[in-house]
Amino acid sequence: MTQKVKVAIIGSGNIGTDLMIKVMRHGKHLEMGAMVGIDPASEGLARATRLGVPTTADGLEGLLSMPEFKDIGLVFDATSASAHQKHASRLDALGVPMIDLTPAAIGPYVVPVVNGDAHRDAKNVNMVTCGGQATIPIVAAVSQVAHVYYAEIVASIASRSAGPGTRANIDEFTETTARAIEVVGGAERGKAIIILNPADPPLMMRDTVFTFSELADQTKVEESIEAMVAKVQAYVPGYRLKQSVQFDEAEIALPSHGRIRGLKTTVLLEVRGAAHYLPEYAGNLDIMTSAALACAETHASAVVAA
């Protein structure tokens, strides 16, 4: 039998529960070792118990006291930015690697298709945000062809798919995403906006990416974007271009460069969830758990091969 890395998930809410289902259905080098929550009555803990996964409702302290903890090789944190600060401190001291699905950003930002291999050995990696996972690959695709002076993303998600963790971390979302647009996407300056859409029935996740770059061959930019979309689709099948890439040559004033004539690129995306546990419209949560699973598989494959 192929050796697998046992994982624990801290956070038994929507994201944690969906991630558990993904690990159990699609984990190649991963298997569930524990599900951790703080509410004994949570649906996530109940589902984990029904599926035969060891659980605790006593948070991180409960995980550390579980006999199963000695076999845990990787921990996902699907709680909040503030909680992750505490979790990371304890687990780092114990040498347990973590994948952070909160906007805490203690470790390096990771978007699997852009820089996943570069941080496979990091002890704490940050999955940025749902908006970041959806849009940074596009910024990076443009950056592969032309220098990007400015990139702005607008992530519109169904209000129903925004749980208490998302709502409590709006400021961290915008700050973390903007920074990752620069660090991972390659833009000189990044900006992020999130919109919680109250439409009923709920709408699919939609993301708009604007970049302003040096003038470049539009065909090459479009080909780079389409190739990147295909790479993301390998682990997020519901990720797609909503319509053709739009271009416009324009002259604008930038604080650091003065007036520059460049290429404005507009990309419209849709993310449809896989509906493993969450509804299809929760593409924002699905792309986060899918990216986290892809990142964990990269880490675990190295561990198994060692």
Rank of each mutant, 00 (worst) to 15 (best):
A192V: 02
S65W: 04
A151Y: 01
V184P: 09
G186R: 00
E43C: 09
S301G: 12
V145Y: 05
G33N: 07
V96M: 14
V139D: 06
T177S: 12
P67W: 02
E43G: 08
E175N: 13
A300L: 06
V114E: 03
T177Y: 03
K242V: 05
V125F: 01
C295P: 08
G262Q: 00
G62F: 06
Y277N: 15
K70E: 15
V128H: 10
A306Q: 15
G37D: 07
V236G: 08
G163H: 05
S224M: 00
M20V: 03
Q85G: 14
A57M: 08
D18G: 07
T176L: 14
G185W: 01
S159Y: 05
L63R: 02
K264F: 06
K6L: 08
V7I: 09
A234G: 07
A158T: 02
E214M: 12
L30S: 07
E61P: 06
I10Q: 06
T266Q: 15
P103H: 11
G16F: 02
V110M: 09
V113I: 12
I99P: 08
M228N: 02
I157V: 15
A122K: 05
S42G: 09
V142Y: 03
T56V: 03
A168V: 09
A118L: 15
I153D: 08
I193T: 15
N126R: 05
A291N: 08
V271D: 05
F69R: 15
E270G: 13
K86P: 04
Q133R: 02
L60I: 03
D92M: 13
V111D: 04
A275I: 08
P112N: 02
E31R: 13
H26T: 10
S89H: 08
P237A: 14
S65I: 05
A227H: 07
P108R: 11
V184H: 06
S156R: 14
K22T: 05
I260G: 10
I106T: 11
G258R: 14
S65D: 11
T56F: 02
P255K: 15
V145I: 12
Q85R: 10
T208V: 12
E226I: 13
F212Y: 05
M35T: 00
D121I: 03
P40R: 09
A306K: 12
A294D: 09
G185C: 02
I21H: 10
T266R: 15
M228A: 02
E226H: 13
L63A: 06
E222C: 10
D171Q: 11
S301F: 05
I136G: 08
T49F: 07
D248M: 12
P40G: 10
A158V: 00
E43M: 12
T135L: 08
N124K: 04
H257P: 04
P198E: 01
H29T: 08
I138C: 07
L74C: 05
A118I: 10
M24Y: 05
H257I: 02
L215I: 14
A199N: 12
R240Q: 13
G116K: 01
L51H: 04
H257F: 10
Q85D: 10
A88I: 06
I21Q: 11
A216M: 04
G16I: 00
T298R: 13
D286G: 08
A46P: 04
P137Q: 00
L45F: 00
L269R: 04
C130A: 12
N197K: 12
S213D: 04
T102G: 13
A180S: 01
D207S: 15
M66C: 09
D217F: 03
M228D: 01
F247Y: 06
T211F: 01
E251T: 11
T219S: 15
A158M: 00
